[in-house]
Design a protein around this nucleic acid. Sequence first.
DNA 1: TTGAAAGCGCTAACAG
DNA 2: CTGTTAGCGCTTTCAA
Lengths: 341, 341
Amino acid sequence: MTTNRDITIYDIAKALNISASTVSRGLKNHPHVRKEVKQKILLTASKMGYQQNKFASNLRQKHTLTIGVVLQTLDSYFTAKVISGMEKIANDAGYNLIISQSQESLKKESASIATMFNTRVDGLLVSLSNETRDLDHFNVLFKKGIPVVFFDRVMDHPKCKCVLINNFKAGYEATSHLISQGCKNIIHLGGSQNRNVYVDRYKGYKHAMIDHGLEVGKKSLILSDLNHTAGMTIAHELLQEKKLPDGIFAGNDATAVSIICELKKAGVRIPEDVCVVGFNDDPISRVVEPNLTTIHYPGREMGEMATSTLINTLKGKQSDLLNSIVLNHSLIIRESSMRIK
Amino acid sequence: MTTNRDITIYDIAKALNISASTVSRGLKNHPHVRKEVKQKILLTASKMGYQQNKFASNLRQKHTLTIGVVLQTLDSYFTAKVISGMEKIANDAGYNLIISQSQESLKKESASIATMFNTRVDGLLVSLSNETRDLDHFNVLFKKGIPVVFFDRVMDHPKCKCVLINNFKAGYEATSHLISQGCKNIIHLGGSQNRNVYVDRYKGYKHAMIDHGLEVGKKSLILSDLNHTAGMTIAHELLQEKKLPDGIFAGNDATAVSIICELKKAGVRIPEDVCVVGFNDDPISRVVEPNLTTIHYPGREMGEMATSTLINTLKGKQSDLLNSIVLNHSLIIRESSMRIK
DNA sequence: TTGAAAGCGCTAACAG
DNA sequence: CTGTTAGCGCTTTCAA
């Protein structure tokens, strides 16, 4: 009742008095099988409750229909959206996803890559950890020709394709918006400067400032882990200064929200005294008061695009000329930065 | 440079002038191999860059070291935490996770189960969709003896173990708290009554009301999908009535927060006019103003427990007598329900 | 303690 | 269009 042997192509071959190879062909719709035979095969297969043994098949075909995903952490709204998109595309194409978290540690990232390699994933979808400075730990994969697609936190590599947004432009727009609201003394809250996303957002900020004739002082960039705690600490530090900035462009929403809460507690008015802009369009941005102006950032689509790019590469349908896919972002203006109505 | 053939146990057998079976034994630390030989095998294996071919191994051994996860949706803070916990335990034990989303649809849930079955997962971790009324679609698994562990949204079945919290008690506590703050006309916002989590929370609410001599009117239970939109709709409906309830116990935080925002827009004071309690301790509960009183609910631990229970079952280390594991929750009291300081 | 050999279930080259 | 055959890489009896 428990482990009655699985039925194989031989069983159905015997039942039909044909050879196993014909069954194998029929099952995968090979052109060299008569229609009637194919029909019969399909029919008895389902009648007998046949299910293909993927291990035998993989053993022969040397591919696994498995895609590995390595990212910093699962427990954020953005990454959840990304995975959700990946899962959809992958499943539709018959691939399975296996997921691993680097927790922003290079060591864990390397370990995950190694595990994925050993599991013989067909390809990899990666968003780099904050600690990662080079791609040496990917060499095992590159040597074997296993394709890697980076998403969001990317790094240039001749063998890799990327899916991302234009962080420079987004940073530029966020900052320009603050300037348009009359802010002059704007600071930027940045993340790990190993990562394109944070480097580019900062660059965008800087260029916007310069283009509008504003000064970028020494203290204008504050680096942190960009989480709730970091936001609190930074808020307290700012409150120590003689003069508060009149605009804050934060590298993500968590930090922006945390700062808003702390400043409000200290009696600072948002946006009258300080305008704040975040990044990500997390659900909290719509709940904090005042609602947070932020950059919307298509997580699900990013996951979908990265996955279909990888799958196309796997199937040889992707041009090697493709370097990166840039998705559209948008500035969502809400009360936290609206001085002028 | 790309596809130089993988090295196999035969390669290392040849190199050492011993048989492949000995190598196989040595690699997995079989007792019937001389120590020195074992050493040599391990050494040359790593020197030659050997990696085991799991497909060949699985084909023989008939297990896959893969665990399937089926849940409603990935893009919520709670499920992200759960997955995060699962991923940790599974990886540590050498298992891989494959994940699929039911999107609250029975059809998709059934399809996921079927796919998982075909992928021959060793076991399954499942949180049931809102539409699911029975476990018929799990029969293929049960027949084959593939173990299933339910987490959070569970259903009783002689072959399945569950990991969950005491939703009845949590609902009872949440409601009692509202009563202790002077609320008398309390309503409950419930979810799908196919699901234990929502049924039990409602029961807890009802018992608390009755135990405190309060009436549970016909309109005291409002059923919905418990999302942002549902919260808005419900808020507007409530505002149409002549009299607002003085307490709301919502089945989750998203709905509670959405209601708070809408009521506030209409000039209702929280908690003076209406006290609100949510469920889940989502990040938004700490951002909404006033901060939301809610039930904290250990997602990561739930994922960890479910996974280790499954793995122990797989290894035959789990008593069949185990029925369910109940984790502790806690009531987090914040401003949204604090009338008495 | 080791080796020979069979076979897990499937695919594909080759022959017909 | 169909069948024969060999083998993917590993594990595991059985015999030595």
